[in-house]
Design a protein around this nucleic acid. Structure first.
Lengths: 346, 346
DNA sequence: ACAAAGAGTGTAAGCGCTTACACGATTAGT
DNA sequence: ACTAATCGTGTAAGCGCTTACACTCTTTGT
C-alpha cells in the first residue's frame, strides 16, 4: 500500500538507486531524470521512510533530551531554544522527562537506546561517576545542559557569578545580615550559588555566618520548593536577630520566604530585602528581584553544539558558560517594571 | 564495533533467530538457551538497535506530539500526563512545537514522516479541511488534544460548560453587566467559551449585550495575551457604563484586565469581579478566580487512546470530553486558598 | 512400537533505503 | 582518431533486526 522507491523507480523507468539519489540531492543525476522522478514521486505522494533511511545511513535524525522536572518554566524555555534551532535542520526532538533526579538514569538509558538518536542532551543532572561512565560508554554525541563535567561538552550558566551578583546587590542595598536559603546541597547549582554568596561576602570583608545559611532537607524538587523557602524563612525569623537580606537559590523558595515574612508582618523591602534566582514568570507579578538566566540562548547554543558534534565527531570539547543577570524589582526596593503588582495590592 | 545479535549468536552458539526470540520474549525458547543468551548479551553489553527493530517490525516505538506554543503552562501539564503514561510503555515521545498556529502545518508534516512514529497527537489546532485531509491521508493512529473534528479521536474539555460555569458564577455573585474578553474568534475554544457565556446569560433571562463583548484582534498568541486583556479592559472602562463582572477567555487576558482595572483605581472584587480561564500558575498568586481544566488527565487519556489505537487499529473512534471546574478566588470575593497573595500586599 | 503432535532451533527472506562498485556512453585531450 | 577522464545509471550488498517456514528431536497416545 505505502509507496516506496520501487514504485517510483518502475513507474519512472529508472532504478531505485537513481530515485534514492534524487532524494539525497546527489549531483550525479541528470536534470531531466531528476525532474521526471520528482514528478512521479509527487504524483504517487511518495514520502521517504524515516526509519529505513536512518538504518541505511547508520545515523538517526533524532536528538534526545533528558529533562528532569519538565514542569519548570526554566526547562520549557530552554526547550524552546532547542526546538527553534532544530526546526531549521532535519533533526527532530525526542523528549524524556524525569519527574525526579532518580528517574534520570532510567530515562537516560532509554534515550541512549542504540540507534535511536544521533545525539543526546542531558539537562540539570548531577554527573555521578555512574552517569559519566554510562554516557561515555555510549559514545554518542552529547551535550550537558545546566550541568557540568570536565571533558564533556556542556552549556551552563555561571551560578557562582549569579550568587555573587545577588549578594552584592543586597550588600549595595545596605543589608547587614544576609541570609542564604539553599536547596539541597547535592544540587550543584545550589552549591555554586552559595559559593558566589560566600565570595561576595568575603570580598566585602563580611564574615560568613553559618547560622544565616539554611540548607533545605526537603525531598520535593530537591529543596527547590515554595515550602522549603517558607520553612527556612520561618526558622530564620524565629531567632533573636533576624536577617535584613535574603538570597534564595530559587524564585520558588524566595516566594515561600516572602510568605513567611508577610505572615510575620514584616515589610518588604523596608525591613527585609529578598532576592531569588531564575526569574520564573510569577516573579514579575510578585515583584521579586532575581537573577535571570539566558534560558532560550542555552537551548540554542546546546542544539548548535550537539549538531556540530554530530557532523564532526572529532570536534574538540567545549564548555560554554553563559552569564546570568540581575533583575531588580520591588523586593529590593526597585521599581516593578510591571504594573501587575498593583493588582494583588487591591 | 557495536555489538549485534550476530555477535551474541556466534558467541552463544545459537542462531540469530534464537537471539531475537529471546529479546522478544518468545515462548518458543528453552529456558537454558534463554539464560545462556541473556548472559552472553549482558557480558557483551548488547542493546537492541531501535531503528533496525522498528524497520523489521514495521512499526515504530515513537509517538509524536504537535504542540503550538509550548511555552504555555497548559501544554506542559498535558505533556506531563502524556510522558508519565508513555514512560510505562515502550513508547517514546517526539515533540514538535510550533510557535504559531501557522507553523502547525509544517510541523505536522514532519511529524507525519512515514515510518517515523506509530501515532500522532495534535494539540489545540483548528481542524481546517486541509489538515483533516492531510491527517486522514496519513492513516496513522491519531488523537486530537484540545481540538475536535467529527470522526477523529479526540480528548477535549468542555469549553461551553467552562464558559457557562464562569458566567453563572458571576451571575450568582450578583453581577449585572458581565463583559466577555475574547481571544481571536478563529480559536475554537474561545468561541465555545463565548457560547457558554451566552447560554448562561440567556438561561438567566439576561440579554447579551454586544458592546460588552470585546474580541481581540491581536496576532500574538491569537489574542491569548496579557496585552490583549489589558487593551480590551481599557476599552470597556472608557464607556459610560462599565461592566461589574468580566469573564476572560484566558487567565493571561484576565491578568491584563486586572491591571487595567487597577490602573483605573477600581477595587476588585468590590466594583468589578473577574474570572479567567486555565488556572495557570500565576493565578493562584494573583488570587484569580478561574476555570481549571484537567490538563494532566488530558495527557493521560490522550496517551491511552493513542496506544489503544496503535494496538488495535480497528478501534472505534471516541471523543472524550472532560469537564472543567470552577476555582473561586479573591477576584470574585472568594478566599485565596493560598496565603501567597499577602506577599504582594506588603 | 509407531504415527502424530509439539517443542526448540535454524535458514532465509524480507523491512525500505543508501552507496560502493561496475559499466556503457559521452566528452575531452593530444 | 584513440585513449583517458567524466557523467549518468544500474546492480547488488548491506544496515540490524523479525518472522514464516522447515527441520530435527522428544513426547504422547494407542
Amino acid at each position: 500500500m505505502p509507496v516506496t522507491i520501487y514504485d517510483i523507480a518502475s513507474k519512472a523507468g529508472v532504478s531505485i538507486a537513481t530515485v534514492s539519489r534524487v532524494f539525497n540531492e546527489s549531483p550525479r543525476v541528470s536534470p531531466s531524470t531528476r525532474s521526471n522522478v520528482l514528478e512521479v514521486a509527487a504524483q504517487l505522494g511518495y514520502q521517504p521512510h524515516a526509519t529505513a533511511r536512518s538504518l541505511a545511513r547508520r545515523k538517526s535524525s533524532i536528538v534526545s533530551a533528558v529533562i528532569p522536572m519538565l514542569t519548570n518554566y526554566f526547562f520549557v524555555e530552554i526547550l524552546r531554544g532547542l526546538q527553534d534551532t532544530l526546526a531549521k535542520t532535519e533533526y527532530d526532538l525526542l523528549v524524556f522527562s524525569a519527574r525526579t533526579l532518580d528517574e534520570v538514569d532510567g530515562q537516560m538509558d532509554r534515550a541512549l537506546q542504540r540507534g535511536q538518536a544521533a545525539g543526546i542532551l542531558v539537562f540539570s543532572s548531577p554527573m555521578t561517576p555512574a552517569r559519566v561512565e554510562r554516557l561515555s560508554k555510549a559514545k554518542e554525541a552529547l551535550v550537558l545542559v545546566d550541568c557540568f563535567h570536565a571533558g564533556l561538552d556542556s552549556v551552563t550558566t555561571n551560578n557562582v557569578e549569579g550568587g555573587n551578583l545577588a549578594t552584592k546587590h543586597l550588600l549595595e542595598q545596605g543589608c547587614q545580615r544576609i541570609a542564604l536559603l539553599m536547596a539541597n546541597p547535592e544540587s550543584v547549582p545550589a552549591r555554586d550559588r552559595r559559593e558566589g554568596y560566600v565570595r561576595a561576602l568575603e570580598a566585602a570583608g563580611r564574615a560568613v555566618e553559618e547560622n544565616l545559611i539554611v540548607v533545605s532537607a526537603d525531598e520535593e524538587h530537591h529543596g527547590y520548593s515554595e515550602k522549603s523557602g517558607y520553612d527556612a524563612m520561618r526558622q530564620l525569623l524565629s531567632v533573636a536577630e533576624p536577617p535584613d537580606g535574603v538570597f534564595a537559590t530559587s524564585d520558588v523558595q524566595a516566594i515561600g520566604a516572602l510568605r513567611a515574612i508577610s505572615e510575620a508582618g514584616l515589610p518588604v523591602p523596608d525591613t527585609i530585602r529578598v532576592v531569588g534566582y531564575d526569574d520564573i514568570l510569577i516573579s514579575q507579578h510578585v515583584g521579586l528581584t532575581t537573577i535571570r538566566q539566558p534560558m532560550y540562548e542555552m537551548g540554542v547554543v546546546a542544539a548548535k553544539r550537539l549538531l556540530s558534534q554530530v557532523s564532526s565527531p572529532t570536534q574538540v570539547r567545549a564548555q560554554t558558560v553563559l552569564s546570568p543577570s540581575l533583575v531588580v524589582r520591588r523586593t529590593t526596593g526597585g521599581q516593578s517594571e510591571l504594573a501587575h503588582t498593583e493588582v494583588a495590592q487591591s
